[in-house]
Simulated assay, not measured.
Amino acid sequence: MDFRALGMGVAFALMWSSAFTSAKIAVVYAPPFAILSVRFLISGLIAVGIAYALGQRAALTRRQWVAVVLFGLCQNVVYLGANFFAAQYIEASLAVIVASLLPLLVAGANALRGERLGAVALMGLLAGLAGVLVIMGDRLSGGADSFGVFVVVVGVLALTVATLLVQGAAPQGNVIMIVGLQMLVGSAALFPLSLLTETWVIDWQWPLIAAFTYTTLVPGLLATVTWFLLVKRVGPTRAATFHFLNPFLGVAIAAIILGEALSLRDILGVAVIMAGILAVQLSRMPAEALARR
Rank of each mutant, 00 (worst) to 15 (best):
P171H: 00
L125W: 05
R238M: 13
I50D: 11
G168N: 05
R293Q: 08
K232M: 04
D145R: 10
K232C: 01
V154W: 05
Q88F: 02
Y89V: 02
S194E: 09
E91D: 13
L45S: 06
T224M: 14
M1K: 09
V154M: 14
L54Y: 08
V69A: 14
R39T: 13
Q64G: 00
F147I: 15
P171Q: 00
A271Q: 12
L268C: 12
R284A: 14
L196I: 12
I253E: 00
F150Y: 06
A26N: 06
W204D: 11
G44I: 00
I273R: 06
L140Q: 11
L36R: 10
V96A: 09
V179F: 02
E288Y: 01
F20M: 05
R57V: 03
M285D: 03
L165V: 02
W227I: 08
A99G: 05
M285E: 15
L104A: 05
G220H: 07
R57Q: 07
I42G: 10
R293C: 01
R4G: 15
A127C: 13
W200T: 14
P31Y: 12
M1T: 15
A279Q: 05
G7Q: 13
L105G: 04
T224W: 00
L102T: 08
T226F: 00
V201Y: 10
E198S: 11
V231F: 00
T226E: 01
R265Q: 14
G180N: 02
T160Y: 02
G143R: 07
V179Y: 00
R265K: 15
T226G: 01
G108N: 08
A127T: 15
K24G: 06
S283Q: 10
L104K: 08
V38C: 05
Y52D: 04
L229D: 04
L112N: 07
A58C: 07
L181A: 10
V154E: 09
L159M: 13
T21K: 01
P192D: 13
S263H: 12
A119C: 08
A107S: 13
V161H: 04
S22H: 08
L45Q: 12
G44N: 02
G143Y: 07
V251E: 05
L264H: 09
N110T: 04
G235K: 00
I90F: 04
F20A: 08
V98Q: 03
G269S: 09
A13L: 14
